[in-house]
Amino acid sequence: MIVLGFFLTAPMGIGYMEHKVLAHMQHRLGPMEAGGFHGWAQLVADGVKFIQKEDIIPKAADSWVFTLAPAVVMVPYIAIFAVIPFGRTLWAENLDIGIFYVLAITAISVIGILMAGWASANKFSLIGALRAAAQLIAYELPLILASVAVVMQAGTLSLVGISEAQHHYWYIFTQPVGFFIFIVASLAELTRPPFDMPIADSEIIFGAYTEYTGLKFAFFLLAEYGGIVAFSAIASVLFLGGYQGIPVIGHLIPGFFWMSGKVGALAFFIIWLRATYPRLREDQLQRFAWVALIPLALADIMVTGVVKVLVK
């Protein structure tokens, strides 16, 4: 229940952050009216609006798959939060294959995008969905390989174990290459700019989501923000020490606040990139993954292995 509640509130926070951060980076105000103080209730109002909107399923569409797709995109992001530790004892479940479970389940939501694009029976949706699938194929590997390097250093797959292993120093200092690869690959998994070709609103309308209206459309957006929270949380656990604070003053503040702060900072960074970088081209994206990121990640794994055995 706590996890579900968290999933419903945290993406709202990130969504509000995106409104405001993007607005201020572009020298405008963003939503200011709803709720009084700086438009904090804008997303609540949006939610209420979305639920009242007519739900249109195009006649050509495959209505069952069309309806299932938003759920397939969203449910995996809920399930990820089962294993993410927000404090030394604050986690729903400490699976011994934690990171493996996370990586496996994040890939499912891309199947949801593929379902959405295919079921829409719309050329633009289909192009968007195929791009999303290509992106998954290209960027799942760097994501996995970067995590393997962290697992090697920590010696465990459990996310709580990985956080505990960073008691003395965070892995961003020993695995800076892995951190870079992981962040780039998560952006691509999330289809966030500069890797948002599956949506690419200036070329293929809104990609796989073109035909969606009302609540189903809102669920895709919720899943996107939920995904930002999820990937920021995983990156915090793997590279930024999770709930471990900085030395000396770390224990004065509870782990939950350290973890939330790190997740917030990474989410801010992801939003910041959207304001900074233009969209890549599809062939550039593929080339970058296969020619740069995967060899780099493989080299990172081997270097980590050699160094760890030598240091021991």
């Binding site: 579900l4 419903l8 639920i51 309806t67 399930a79």
Partner: peptide
């Protein structure tokens, strides 16, 4: 959690079906 997630989606879609024109 998976069941809870599916339930959440089902309830939301049900509500939308009642409320939306």
């Amino acid at each position: 959690l998976l069941i809870g997630g599916v339930g959440l989606v089902a309830v939301a879609f049900g509500a939308a079906r009642v409320v939306a024109p």
